[in-house]
Design a protein around this nucleic acid. Sequence first.
DNA 1: CGGCCCATTGACTATGGTCAATATAAGTGG
DNA 2: CCACTTATATTGACCATAGTCAATGGGCCG
Lengths: 250, 250
Amino acid sequence: MSVKPLPLAPQIACGDCQIRHRAVCARCEGDELQALEEIKYYRRFEAGQTLVWSGDRMDFVASVVSGIATLTQTMEDGRRQMVGLLLPSDFVGRPGRARAPYDVTATTDVMVCCFRRQPFEAMILRTPHLAQRLLEMTLDELDAAREWMLLLGRKTAREKIASLLAILARRNATLLSQTVKGRAITFDLPLTREAMSDYLGLTLETVSRQISALKRDGVIHLEGKRHITVPDMNRLLSEAGDDSDGGLVD
Amino acid sequence: MSVKPLPLAPQIACGDCQIRHRAVCARCEGDELQALEEIKYYRRFEAGQTLVWSGDRMDFVASVVSGIATLTQTMEDGRRQMVGLLLPSDFVGRPGRARAPYDVTATTDVMVCCFRRQPFEAMILRTPHLAQRLLEMTLDELDAAREWMLLLGRKTAREKIASLLAILARRNATLLSQTVKGRAITFDLPLTREAMSDYLGLTLETVSRQISALKRDGVIHLEGKRHITVPDMNRLLSEAGDDSDGGLVD
DNA sequence: CGGCCCATTGACTATGGTCAATATAAGTGG
DNA sequence: CCACTTATATTGACCATAGTCAATGGGCCG
């Protein structure tokens, strides 16, 4: 794996930032935003690079600005489980904790907005807006983790794949503010089969077989290995084992 | 199921409360504590009772004072997955959310300290200590949920059981401030085989078989159905698939 | 072209699930 | 007090789902 020097990350003003209104900083204005501006710096990572290794010292916390990263836990014998999927605006790291408990890996090219940990921790204590937003985001992550526990513990391989595809399709639809109802949805898989298997608690062979099966059954169409079309979102959702419109109404 | 009127829950002053220094209220003093005192009330539930049904309106948030409760998700066809185990000092409910996303069930007799939701939400906004403590607790829960994802996605049935027993043993040891190293540990299972299976993503038959297997292999001793002795904690931990002393050093 | 990575597919196996019988303990009511 | 019921747990026989191991295919890049 060749480690090329990365192009220096551009410094973006908070006011111009794409994730300004969804990230930890969402509720900060004026002085508060200025204070964040002073302790932040950007970093870029290429697809496949590891941002942090489990057990490493972390001197920053960060927001994902663009791209997708994953949190994974690894057992001694090599079994791996992804425990988080980080999308733009998601938060990495924990105030008050110096060591990373998971590997953080870029699955696409990723840009993060890092805040030096010490000043950020101090800021949390005196900036209620920051703590409140972080609380809200953490509660959302907890909900997502619990949804994932249901998937890992009780869903079949086919349902697991359908659930993942549904999440990606929904996310893509909201990004493009397409309507999900009715019309076909199209997107690119940002994950390899192996990453999907780590996420779903399956082997990559099972992932591959189930994707083929969903294709055979017309639930999805595939172009190449990564480009997916979902002709009928409700069909996909019912394959996922959720109530047919559960995730859409909300 | 006969629904007896429960004895009225006693009103305890915050100063006398067992969980005073571990619950959401831990960092509140003086006026803040007084404000909490004014919006709180206690409720008791018997083993087996449901505190809240998924989808119900919840007009309070709460701290578990004593006993054990569970959070479970249920699929339409009845498959169930426990997504949280609530021990004394743990928090139930989410500020800013009116409907419960999970069933909350008492597995032993339970006492909770409820805070009326509206005033509690208002208090979060103006009491940084409260928001900060809740953030910390939520981050801990998120870590626990992620640990659980590794278990659900990647561990074998035997490892799952050993992991659960290890958690219960450790918790019991800390409660009694016994040292975990060396000497044998003894405790009662607070969960039925079925609840264990819901927690572990297994069937109750598999739970039963694996407990029998651990007994046969001398990893645990059983008296009756519920009383467990762990002669060698390190043995149990290595059966759980964690590094042999991972959870102890900390 | 050759090598590498990612993905697919097949044959076989193993782990845990299903269905069913039986055991055990704790009530409940005659 | 004992028969009866009910809830909880154990065990066995069989089966299905997903895992393992291995061969093969298809892009992409040097």
